[in-house]
């Protein structure tokens, strides 16, 4: 079976790749495009470690065929920090110690940013349900939820706080 040529916009730049017809978008990101920030924890949509934003909506990239991304716009963890400065969600994960091993962290950050992009003032319950598709085995979620709430509070203020260069 010959490979399929796919053209996308990836983290703001044009990106093309070849993929097997049955390859997932996650396979293409990791193995064809060298972006290993999106992780495969399960390959069945049950852990969220591969979360990316495709055409404006967060998805499990393991549950999307790479070929489906033709013409699509993809944002991965590698594109979350803008202008070489961490996004507030990334910054707050660091400040709250909201990661231990860090393997699930990219998926959580992409998902949390997707939440705050549409809901600047979520309740704790809204944060918990929004992030229910992302498994973390290290933290018990406490510090993750606090980091996301804190990032939301900061994003609601106009003044950008001090952030770490990415």
């Amino acid at each position: 079976m010959s490979k399929i040529h796919v053209s996308t916009t990836l983290n703001g730049d044009a990106a093309e790749f070849l993929c097997d017809p049955s390859a997932s978008l996650l396979d293409a990101l990791r193995d064809e495009l060298g972006l290993t920030g999106s992780k495969e924890g399960c390959g069945s949509g049950d852990c969220g470690a591969c979360t990316v934003v495709l055409d404006g909506e967060m998805v499990c990239s393991c549950l999307v065929f790479a070929a489906e991304a033709e013409g699509g716009t993809i944002q991965t963890i590698e594109g979350v920090a803008e202008s070489a400065v961490l996004h507030p969600v990334q910054q707050k994960f660091l400040e709250h110690g909201a990661l231990q091993c860090g393997f699930c962290t990219p998926g959580f950050i992409v998902a949390a940013k997707a939440l705050l992009d549409r809901n600047p003032d979520p309740t704790e319950t809204e944060v918990r349900y929004w992030l229910a598709g992302n498994l973390c085995r290290c933290t018990g979620y406490d510090k993750i939820v606090r980091a996301v709430m804190d990032a939301a509070a900061e994003l609601r203020q106009d003044r950008p706080s001090e952030r770490t260069p990415a």
Binding site: G45, G48, T51, E57, A111, W130
Partner: peptide, 9 residues
Amino acid sequence: IGSVQVRNR
């Protein structure tokens, strides 16, 4: 069904 990620598909 599933998670937000899943329901977006």
